[in-house]
């Protein structure tokens, strides 16, 4: 199979879907002629014309608001918010409109819409180019929330998202765009071309929403992760020599509870990791579910490693980002408790 970066895989997913389904339209700020600030839409306007892929005014509420109208008409918009940090002006449309249209109209109108947002830190992005906003969406009923961690999944999940009849928030860890990142910021980055997870099937295929993947089977402890933190967790387990079972959730809503529960019941221990801030983060939901479903199998308290409860700082990037050191120490503590 050919190897692609995550950027190429995401672009390929849109290319495949635009080719298969003429109701798929792609737009956002700098998305058209220029091909996106991260190059995720490069060449699409040239290939499909500017009524299928076009530049939008700098108005997140306008982008998502018009996309909802298009979806109501019968198109399948796949729109981009340049950074997840800038989704807030569109939050009203996403949470009160896109998420509720099917419910409030009893299916009279629907909202098959994908909103792509580059997310996450580890790039010296500071406060407004690093945020992980997933918990602000997982709390909203009616939205699906997806976070891929490699090119193969990114393409397959994005195709699934575009084909899905409901609104999907598609969070792309920009730290993973060009290569996997395990938090070892002092080491050179490996490009996806040198990584087997960079192998991406050509043409149409899907990775189903609502299904987790076991990134590393293990027996000592279960690690629940998604996005960049999957790679961090793998590195932390390898560094510490711990036989951790690392689960890449891939979809936060709907959540693959069965895979999580089976793993924790097997290992008896669980660590939850995410970049997002700790308090009321998605990790709290995961811990609750593990506690409710695996209480009698737990041999240690479930632990969370997350971003600190502060805005994402600039100079203190590596003191903030939950890297393999912090994750590894948490794994040790869980095994010792």
């Amino acid at each position: 199979m050919p190897r692609m970066t995550m950027i190429e895989a995401i672009r390929d997913a849109m290319d495949v879907m635009m080719g298969r389904d003429e109701t798929v339209v792609v737009y956002g700020e700098d998305v058209g002629y220029f091909g996106g600030v991260f190059r995720c839409t490069q060449g699409l306007q040239q290939k499909y014309g500017k009524t299928r892929c076009f530049d939008a005014p700098i108005s997140e509420s306008g982008i998502v608001g018009t996309a909802i109208g298009m979806a109501a008409y019968g198109l399948k918009p796949c729109v981009e918010i340049q950074f997840a940090d800038y989704m807030y002006p569109a939050y009203d449309h996403i949470t009160q409109e896109a998420a509720r249209i099917r419910y409030r109209s009893n299916g009279d109108f629907t909202c098959p819409l994908v909103i792509r947002m580059p997310t996450g830190g580890g790039i010296f992005g500071g406060q407004t180019h690093s945020q992980s906003v997933e918990a602000l969406f997982t709390h909203v009923c009616g939205l699906k929330v997806v976070v891929p961690c490699n090119p193969y999944d990114a393409k397959g999940l994005l195709i699934s998202a575009i084909e899905d009849p409901d609104p999907v928030i598609f969070l792309e860890p920009k730290r993973l765009y060009n290569g996997p990142f395990d938090g070892h910021h002092d080491r050179p980055v490996t490009p996806w071309s040198k990584h087997e997870a960079g192998e991406v099937q050509a043409g149409h295929y899907t990775v189903p929403l609502g299904k987790a993947a076991v990134a590393r089977p293990g027996s000592a402890v279960t690690v629940l992760a998604y996005g960049t933190m999957v790679h961090v967790a793998l590195a932390a387990a390898a560094d510490a020599g711990i036989d951790a079972e690392v689960i890449d959730l891939r979809t936060l809503v709907p959540l693959d509870l069965d895979t999580i529960v089976a793993s924790v019941r097997k290992t008896g221990r669980c660590l939850v990791v995410h970049e997002a801030t700790l308090t009321s983060g998605f990790g709290a939901e995961l811990v609750s579910l593990v506690q409710e479903n695996c209480f009698h199998h737990l041999e240690a308290p479930v632990v969370r490693v997350a971003g600190w409860d502060t805005p994402y700082p600039h100079a203190q990037e590596w003191d903030y980002f939950p890297g393999p050191g912090r994750v590894g120490r948490a794994l040790q503590e869980i095994l010792e408790s």
Partner: peptide
């Protein structure tokens, strides 16, 4: 008659999107 929302003004921009869709098609 598009589904009415309690959130004021949201429909105003959605209408524009619907119209854009009609033009795209």
């Amino acid at each position: 008659f598009f589904t009415i929302s309690g959130n004021l003004a949201t429909q105003f921009v959605q209408a524009v999107g619907w119209a854009m869709a009609s033009a795209i098609r």
